[in-house]
Amino acid sequence: MPQRNIVEAINSALTDEMQADQRVMVLGLDVGKLGGVFRTTSGLIEKFGSERVVDTPLAEASIVGASLGLALAGMVPVAEIQFLGFTAQAFHQIGPQLGKYRQRSRGRYHCQVTIRAPFGGGIRSPEFHSDAVEAQFVQAPGIKIVMPSNPYDAKGLLIEAIRDPDPVLFCEPDRLYRSGKAEVPDGAYTVPFGKASLVREGDNVTLVAWSAAVELCLRAADALAADGISAAVLDLRTLVPLDVETLCTQVAKTGRCVVVHEAPLSAGFGAEVSATLMEEIFYDLDAPVMRVGAFDVPFPAASLEDHYLPSLDRVVKAVKRTMES
């Protein structure tokens, strides 16, 4: 089977869907000749032409707002926001508009729109480029939130997103874009939303993560194994819908849980995971659920990002604390 990194997996998903469905189009900043700043849309304009692969003016609100309108007209837009931090410039078109359109129209209209956006720290990006703001969109009901962590999921989840009748925010971990290849089939396949994936088995504690933090948790599990602690790693894959069942079953098995995310700690999605576990399986917990996130300050200068982001050391320490209680 062909090996692909995340960039290639995304490119392959877009290519397959554009080939299969004439209505699918890609729009955003620099997605055409340049192929996107990370090259995820490389070669698409050559294959599908500039009517379906569109370099837009530099205006995020219009990219998203126009995608909503394009969808109403019967197109299937896949919009790219160059960096997730710049969804701020489009927020009113995402949360209050895309997320509410079905409801506002009493079900008359729906918006089959996918918004793709790279994000995350660790690559020394300039200001605003690294912000992990996924939890902000969880507070905008009506939107599904997809956070792939590996090439296979990236392709399958993106195809699922493009085919979903409702709007999907698809967040891509830029730090992992080219970090490794995995088997990714040619041709379309889907990975369903709302199905968490146990990427590593373990008996003592469950590390819960999504996107690039999964990779960090896998490294932490290795480090913990050396200390005789067996850690499972659960990749949520989608925050909305949240796979409550797998989450609870898995954490109940180990009795201990640490949630890890790149976003600031307070009101990050880790809080939702922790609260859900409290409500659902309180009596199966052997220790308080712990969270490891970035600190509650704005993303700092790139020179300081290693100190700001959750580190291997902080994850390991948190696990050891849960093991002690």
Binding site: G32, T56, P57
Partner: peptide, 8 residues
Amino acid sequence: AISTSRRV
């Protein structure tokens, strides 16, 4: 604007 011509 990066790769985008002013005509866009």
